[in-house]
Amino acid sequence: MLRVEINGKGREVGDGRTVAGLLEDMELDGRLVVVELNGQIIRRTEIADVTLRDGDRIEIVHFVGGG
């Protein structure tokens, strides 16, 4: 298992998990969220190619109501 931080909270994910796999595990629609990995935005077209590593800091954001 890998120890990562997602939206400020520590979590464990399976070895070799990609960003796309992580979103699947969390039942999040990859078309509606954006993932930032260690401060770098992961383009939607690349989420299946990026593999997570121990200690990664992941931010998953989306649009909410705002002014």
Binding site: I6, N7, G8, K9, M26, L28, V33, V34, E59, I60, V61, H62, F63, V64, G65, G66, G67
Partner: peptide, 10 residues
């Protein structure tokens, strides 16, 4: 219309 960007509440 404006929208905000926020963390998904996991």
């Amino acid at each position: 219309v404006t929208v905000a960007v926020r963390r998904v509440d996991l």
